[in-house]
């Protein structure tokens, strides 16, 4: 579970990036984290990944508190949290397989287990036939799939995706979203930062957290937001109109 309790983050020159943010993300939950540029989405992701520490408040990730976890033990948190970026951050000059195998190797996977696990992960993201392709030979969507496979090497309990579809076309975006729903269906939580409101509107029953100038101004799960939205029993199908009643993207703070 991820729990942010009254979290604030202040940078010396930029001022407050987050102010008194509180929310939880439970096991197997899917949530969009949205807001305009500079609203604090990436800061929130970095705090959950413990790249940064909060100035005030506490971030708890799978039992690890930002107040207590030491630099030396950060790797334990990182193995519980998968992370994908808008720009993929794959190692150039290596194949899809090598990118995933590298992550497995450096996290201490026994040598004999690396190959089957890397192949299984690539298969899970639909790239079993492209394992030997070099990164620069893959499309943007395929590169993001490799990045997702890499994020799953430690079987994390949550996947943080920071604008993962920002560089992708509509078709590739749909493919990546389907993959996220598959991952969520297997019990992994997904927190996806995006400023793409159209995309959010396609999944009206999905939880939405909205940040504005560092403050959490909207949580569709919040009991007092006036809108009742039951959790989807499974991966919700994308809605082409985005006009479903009760949609956070249409009625919330977006």
């Amino acid at each position: 579970m991820i729990k942010l309790s009254n979290v604030s983050k202040q940078y010396p020159k930029r001022g407050f990036a987050l102010k008194d943010v509180t929310f939880q993300l439970g096991k197997g939950e899917f949530a969009f984290l949205t807001g305009h540029s500079g609203s604090g989405k990436s800061t929130t992701m970095r705090l959950i990944h413990m790249v940064d520490r909060p100035t005030a408040g506490e971030v708890r990730v799978s039992g690890y508190s930002s107040d207590k976890v030491t630099e030396r033990d950060l790797w334990k948190v990182r193995r519980r949290v998968g992370y994908v970026f808008q720009d993929f951050r794959l190692l150039p000059g290596r194949t899809a397989y090598e990118n995933v195998a590298f992550a497995l190797e450096v996290t201490g996977t026994p040598p004999k287990a690396i190959k089957p696990k890397a192949q299984r992960l690539l298969s899970q993201v639909g790239l079993s036939t492209k394992a030997g392709a070099f990164v620069n030979e893959l499309s943007g969507g395929e590169q993001q799939r490799v990045a997702i496979a890499r994020a799953l090497v430690n079987d994390p309990f949550v996947l943080l995706a920071d604008e993962p579809t920002g560089n992708l076309d509509e078709r590739a975006t749909r493919g990546i979203m389907e993959l996220f729903w598959d991952i969520q269906a297997k019990g992994m939580a997904v927190l996806m930062a995006t400023h793409d409101l159209e995309l959010i509107r396609q999944y009206p029953r999905t939880r939405v957290l909205e940040l504005d100038h560092g403050k959490l101004v909207y949580d569709s799960r919040s009991p007092d937001d006036g809108v009742s939205r039951p959790d989807p029993p499974g991966p919700p199908p994308p809605e082409s109109t985005g006009q479903e009643g009760g949609s956070s993207a249409t009625q919330g703070g977006l």
Binding site: E71, R72, L74, W75, K76, V77, R78, R79, Y83, R89, L91, P92, F102, A103, V106, T107, G108, R150, A151, V153, N154
Partner: peptide
């Protein structure tokens, strides 16, 4: 630096890096 970044990202121990 890219490799080091990825190692940190996926949870490699500092001693291992």
């Amino acid at each position: 630096r890219d490799e080091i970044y990825i190692m940190r990202l996926v949870g490699a121990k500092n001693s291992f890096i």
